Simulated scan of single mutants.
Amino acid sequence: MSKVTRPFLATLPKLPHPELWSTLFKGSRARGQLRVSVMTEEAADMATKEMNIANNRDKTIVELFPGPGQWTRSMALGGAKKILAVENGDTYMDSLKVGILELEQASQDTIKVLPLNPADPYDEILDPSKNMLPGVEPQPWDHVHTGLTLVGSIPNSTFGERVLHELLLASIDRMGIFTLGRVEMYMFCYKDAVNRLVAAPGTPSRNRITLMAEAAADITPLMRPGLAHFHLPYDYQLLRLVPHEKPKIETSMEVMDFCLRSLFTNKSHSLNKVIKLLGPGADILLGRLSFDHNIKVKHLTLEQLNEVALKFEQWPLRPTVLYDDMIMHESKRRK
């Protein structure tokens, strides 16, 4: 960041006092729209410190779901080279004129607000003709990208968790933002979503998303400021997610996802009872496994699930159209 820009950013306007947010920023508690944003300067500055921007001032940030922009402001003041704030929330846009849009106008182009869908803005952001990421070049996958970071405040909803899950899958396939390299992520997420992402084998929260996350990235819970630091007041925690140099999946993504979806429909049952959901005759795979197949599905490690998926992929009689077969099984269970 230039010597001219730094003092100018020091004059960025403060956002309204947190006591006024419920009046000024009309969020929605409707299902699927539980947008939660960092509200206090204290929490925003703590998160920015965790990102270590001060020691890497050539960093471009893509921020998903910035809300009024408290974290955006902190990252700009903390030394980010450029911030692309991706926000299209209908419930926010009018009220954001006293928040993030004002920050954009005052930031001398350090902050740019993009009215795009935060769930999938990457075609637009990566379009060479738009030049939205000046100076950001693709980097080899053997190290974490030094000039680009993805951050966000994930909605407290199934939609929000789906956005995060799709990011993890994209990192495995090196799609979207990950076409530029091994981009680290800092995400504020609701505590229950965090518990599901990092749940240990045998714990109630462990599900197929846990396994896909474990296969895709190193996930480290960082700070948990408390409800009073967020609008709306939910218990959110900051995660650091760094894609693995090599994903911990030994089969195709399609096969692994099919196995996880099938087996975790009855995660409290033993594998030898549930494996038939992979297809007629799939119990023949049990004799090919190196571990005790009496184990309950929820106790399976990623290594054991990789073994199941690999044996399934090598099975000559496995279903050839996996997801049509899954739909048929789910329809039978509902009946």
Rank of each mutant, 00 (worst) to 15 (best):
E166N: 12
I111F: 00
V194Q: 04
M223I: 14
G226W: 01
L164Q: 01
F178I: 06
H329K: 12
G135F: 03
L164V: 04
P18Q: 00
V36D: 00
E19M: 08
Q108R: 14
E184M: 07
V183Q: 02
I53S: 03
N56S: 11
D283K: 12
D90L: 12
D325K: 14
C189Y: 03
Y236T: 01
R73E: 04
K296N: 10
S157F: 00
V4N: 07
T179C: 04
N117K: 02
Y92M: 09
L239V: 06
T301Y: 00
K49S: 11
R6H: 14
I53Y: 04
S171I: 06
L77F: 05
R35A: 07
L64T: 02
P128D: 02
F258G: 06
K191C: 08
D120S: 10
K332R: 15
D45W: 10
V136E: 01
D192N: 11
D109S: 09
L114E: 06
Q105W: 07
R35D: 02
F65R: 03
L84V: 06
I295G: 05
K130N: 13
G287N: 14
F291C: 07
D257Q: 11
V86M: 01
G181V: 04
V163Q: 00
D324K: 15
K191D: 14
I219M: 00
Q33T: 09
D325Y: 15
S157H: 02
S252Q: 06
V163M: 01
A54R: 13
K298P: 08
G287V: 13
M175H: 15
I249Q: 12
S252V: 07
K311L: 10
L300E: 05
F25T: 00
N294V: 08
H269A: 12
K335V: 13
A47V: 09
L222H: 02
M93L: 15
T5R: 12
N272S: 12
K81T: 08
Y234F: 12
T40G: 00
Y236H: 03
S95R: 01
D58T: 13
T91Y: 08
L103P: 06
P138L: 02
I53N: 01
E19S: 12
T91M: 05
L84P: 07
W21I: 03
K59R: 15
E102R: 14
T320H: 13
N52P: 04
I154W: 00
S331D: 07
K332M: 12
L289R: 05
K97E: 13
V62N: 10
L169V: 08
L148F: 03
L238M: 02
L285V: 03
C259F: 09
K14G: 08
R261Y: 09
D235Y: 01
E214T: 07
K335Q: 14
V321R: 15
R240E: 05
K191S: 13
I295V: 15
V136F: 03
G27T: 12
